[in-house]
Design a protein around this nucleic acid. Structure first.
Lengths: 232, 232
DNA sequence: GCACAACCTGACCAGCCGGTCAACAAGTTT
DNA sequence: AAACTTGTTGACCGGCTGGTCAGGTTGTGC
């Protein structure tokens, strides 16, 4: 990817590059097709066309449709997990949860297809990633819940059930990806602009943080007159 | 089936009953199969088996797979629309939005399949119900937004963007249906009990209502030292 | 420049899909 | 009880699907 490429790549081999590049092409096409048609509605032919490769070539890199699908689902899951780094290192809920919401909103915008594939997978009973739910996700969630409990004990936020807070964050942030089409339709048929995404992120953060009592009343309670612009 | 059938139903006709009953059976089976397999993954044979009818019989009542699917999607949409009745008649956001959240949570529990089918449809770009989005849903949403704006102008809640509030409510309440499997997995593999559903509803209501400044500080924010809420 | 492995692909296949249809059964009207 | 409408169904079909494979091409190590 960088300056060393010229030299060391001769060693690494052209072969490796070809494989990596083709897998990338296929995964990217697959993500989109699976998102738009669902697992059942997607066809290898469609993915192949979108990737610009013959169908038989897909089966060279990915043995079965399900293998390819699994890789797509795992990808988005990994991206989401990484988004939680900001969560842990934060000293208080406003910054920790706030940063997490921001990260999740950013991912919803940058990886809407992956989000949809995940949603579809879970909705259908998680036939291929049940092990992730029971393993990684469960453990990850417990960790986050513990962190939130700590904040509650320290009096930094209201004593809510951390579980339902997590669900609300997941639901709301992913909604902007999964239901993007509906949102777009309700936005005069146009995708959200940069400004609108920023506003959406701010609103979600504000409502949730205020909702869990983690905002130091910066965003005024009702009937404030001294205030600045109302956010739109 | 019942006592009145013998007498009055002779007029209404046995025929009507048969049709109604079979359509009900088919729609019920279809809702489940479409929810669990997606439109592309669902097969008429599977729906027929689940309804206990021969496949050819399905095509007698519903010309095509798409017709059947459309009816399922329309059903859940109508149910959701009806849930907003409580919204309009309410004098303040706490009761209006609170009742709406409660209604939506109840529907998520009672019609999880319909919710999933809708989610799937929208995620795939709403190929068959785009007209509903642009017509009924858009109009309905504008009406609700106006109501919220009125509450804001009256100083009954914080000046948030009504649109994002609606999205948050939809996302969060429907999450309990659409991602029910994930929630169940994180709940030690067991479906939420009656008590847990009640608690979930209460949490969602509390966080959102507090988040939009519509709660009269019953659930106290942390570190509060003065007593009552401001005049109005 | 040869041997070998990795990569590529057109042609093909068995199986399943949505949908049709002809023949028949049941219910209703007259 | 005949004439007619509505409901029922097994058998069938063309088309598409995921997946295979033989035979070819390209890159790599020696």
């Amino acid at each position: 990817m960088d300056e060393t490429a010229q030299n060391s790549r001769t060693k690494a081999g052209r072969r490796t590059d070809i494989r990596r590049e083709n897998e990338r092409l296929i995964l990217q096409a697959a993500e989109k097709v699976f998102a738009e048609a669902g697992f059942g509605g997607a066809t290898m032919q469609l993915i192949a066309d979108m990737a610009g490769l013959p169908k038989a070539n897909l089966h060279y890199y990915f043995a079965t449709k399900e293998d390819l699908y699994r890789r797509v689902v795992e990808n988005i899951f990994q991206i989401w997990l990484r988004a939680a780094d900001s969560f842990d290192s934060a000293p208080d809920p406003a910054s920790g949860i706030g940063a997490y919401i921001e990260a999740k909103m950013r991912i919803s915008r940058e990886h809407p297809f992956g989000s949809k594939v995940w949603a579809s997978e879970v909705m259908h009973g998680a036939p291929v990633i049940q092990d992730y739910l029971e393993g990684t996700l469960r453990a990850w969630t417990e960790g986050r819940i513990a962190a939130i409990r700590r904040w509650i004990d320290q009096g930094l936020m209201a004593p809510i059930d951390p579980r339902h807070l997590m669900y609300m964050i997941w639901a709301t942030t992913q909604h902007y990806a999964d239901f993007g089409h509906q949102i777009e339709t309700l936005n005069a048929g146009k995708p959200l602009s940069d400004r609108q995404w920023k506003a959406a992120t701010a609103e979600v953060k504000a409502i949730i943080l205020r909702g869990i009592g983690a905002l130091p009343d910066v965003l005024a309670p009702p009937r404030r007159r001294t205030a600045r612009q109302t956010g739109r």
